[in-house]
Design a protein around this nucleic acid. Structure first.
Lengths: 349, 349
DNA sequence: CTACCGAGTGGAACCGGTTCCACTTTTGTA
DNA sequence: TACAAAAGTGGAACCGGTTCCACTCGGTAG
């Protein structure tokens, strides 16, 4: 366990001063004679010298690192997001420190403190919704913050990247309406989140333009964590006036909801037409394959990182940006006309 | 964008020297009068002071950070592993820098260099198999390395955490044999990896003790990346002498393999009994639900981190450790007796 | 022939912590 | 009461980079 060479070792071995070595390391920081540059590079190579990141960060005041704060990586949505962020960051020479919040504002606060200690250049986060003052502090201290997937409305001056939630929900609802469904269940994220509200909004809009009334009993907003999805499915279908179509618009609860449907032996689309938000690899392995809103996770990651890096390098104009990307609707065989269409219609009227 | 207070600001505001503040920050580094400690803590709280990690790392020579190097987070196995590692690390006040290799030794090498620059205290990795000298260098420089899921046999003095691959493969094979299968296909990882070899070993052992011969055509080792799984499935089933049972023991290729089975319309378990390695949440959502080897990912994460942290704190005896954890076999309805059992038996003899 | 300019260089301060050491003040014990 | 050991404190060096600045050379313009 020998120890690594420092810049002074290199300088000594090359017979130059540390200033010269530093200038070789950072090409635009001053002139170096071509001969000496060569010489220094040779020594660096010989000694296997690598600059210590900590020293650099200390003097620079900030790190070439971004924090990624998400709920948990066990959720495929976040896992894929993290995958793309890490990958994209790498190609820019930036490292990613990953932290998870489990949707708990306390854990989130802790993460933010830690990120601050590390002097990260930026943070990409799916905020829990709390910690408004902490986020503000971070921003005021010069850390570039980008919210992805969700936003905190009270918080100004923060970039946001998300999908067109309202529009996506609307398209899913329209699809079911077009098939003849009149009672459509919606399982969505908490109404306290921007995502939840937008999706409910899109759902409502679709119903309105089809002149269908919105039955509040059919809309269930369940928390992002826990077994809320499955329970909501159970209670929706237990109702005597059960829906014939269902949109699961709480990404985190898709798995739990589908599991319950399978357990209950609900025939899809015979008993129930189903559309899920977020197209995971397995959604086409179920029988039948599920119609889905496919979130362009790669795009979300790309834009988020682009914003953070852009701000870190100061090459973006001031003023927060909001980027909304389109999500595809992928029709598969989990949707069909409601079975009781004819009878129920005549019976109701 | 004001700037954060430093230890000297705190010292000045509290009317003490920086040494005292530092001792308050690191309780076991020297005595402080209770009154002054109180006073310093108050000032810290008032100013919202937080020590800069970079400065600390610079003088300590190493960081309270571990690197996690995996293939990619889009793979649920690694995503879950990362989730647990991040979670567990957090509770120890350690941050995790995640890097992905895409199974490419060059990218892996790049990651290791970066990790070295960051003076990480340890690395948890699923090695690609290359870069033996780089790993050695890392180890010699005092970075604690733990391999998880796979090992590099040429590399001594490195801790390894994995499941009992041989035993697991054997149990899966035994299960199919007990049902009456005699031709059992095996799709596994590259034979150049420790994981691949062990699983083939277990498979072979099971066949031998049942006095069945091993047909090399039934064993397909496919790379961890790409579409090898699906293709192997296709070619296995295209054979006139197709297997009646299949074990997909290449975790990374399970999804691709199952997708192909579904696409081909193979009836499970009617035409083919199937067992997959790694029990993802969706394996019970397919129809029928798939029998699986459930890797205790949490245990893998826990042990890996335990080892890394233990070594970082120097509270582990020298000498590499190998930890193998048991994997559960979860029988579901994707396995049954081979349909042609009676006829094929009489016909063959 | 001098004045001036720019390239090239090295010294030293600085970033914000930790730690060693010398020094003063308590304490405890003979 | 005397004197050693322990507790408490501050100064300053150090970790390994970056950067400012002063300085020495050439070469060129006046």
């Amino acid at each position: 366990m020998k120890k690594a060479p420092t810049i002074r070792d290199v300088a000594a071995a090359a017979g130059v001063s540390v200033s010269v070595v530093s200038r070789v390391l950072n090409p635009d920081s001053g002139p170096v004679a071509p001969a000496k540059r060569e010489q220094v590079l040779n020594v660096i190579d010989e000694l296997g010298y690598r600059p210590r990141a900590a020293a650099r960060e200390l003097s620079a005041g900030h790190a070439l690192t971004v924090g990624l704060v998400v709920t948990d990586l066990a959720n495929p949505f976040f896992a894929q997001l993290a995958d793309r962020v890490v990958w994209e960051a790498r190609s820019h020479g930036v490292q990613v420190v990953v932290m998870t919040t489990q949707e708990d504002p306390h854990l989130e606060a802790e993460s933010l403190d830690t990120l601050l200690d590390r002097s990260v250049g930026g943070v990409i986060a799916t905020p829990t919704g709390g910690n408004v003052e902490k986020w503000e502090r971070l921003r005021d201290l010069g850390v570039n913050v980008v919210f992805v997937d969700r936003a905190i409305p009270d918080l100004s001056d923060v970039d946001v990247v998300s999908i067109e939630n309202s529009d996506s929900a609307r398209r899913a609802t329209d699809h079911l309406i077009a098939l003849g469904h009149e009672r459509i269940g919606l399982i969505t994220g908490p109404a306290s989140t921007s995502t939840g509200r937008s999706r409910i909004g899109g759902y409502r809009a679709a119903l309105e333009s089809a002149s269908l009334s919105l039955d509040p009993m059919l809309v269930r907003d369940v928390p992002f964590r826990g077994d809320g999805g499955g329970d909501a499915v159970g209670s929706l279908l237990a109702s005597p006036d059960a829906p014939t179509g269902l949109i699961v618009a709480n990404t985190a609860q898709v798995q739990s909801s589908v599991r319950r449907l399978v357990q209950m032996g609900v025939r899809i689309p015979g008993d129930l037409s189903v559309i899920v938000f977020d197209d995971n690899p397995w959604t086409e392995l179920t029988s039948p394959p599920l119609s889905a809103i496919r979130q362009p996770i790669g795009m979300l990651a790309l834009h988020s990182l682009e914003l953070v890096l852009g701000r870190m390098q100061g090459r973006l104009p001031a003023g927060a940006r909001t980027i909304e990307v389109m999500a595809d609707f992928v029709p598969r065989s989990s949707c069909a006309a409601p079975a009781r269409l004819a009878t129920s219609k005549s019976a109701t009227r």
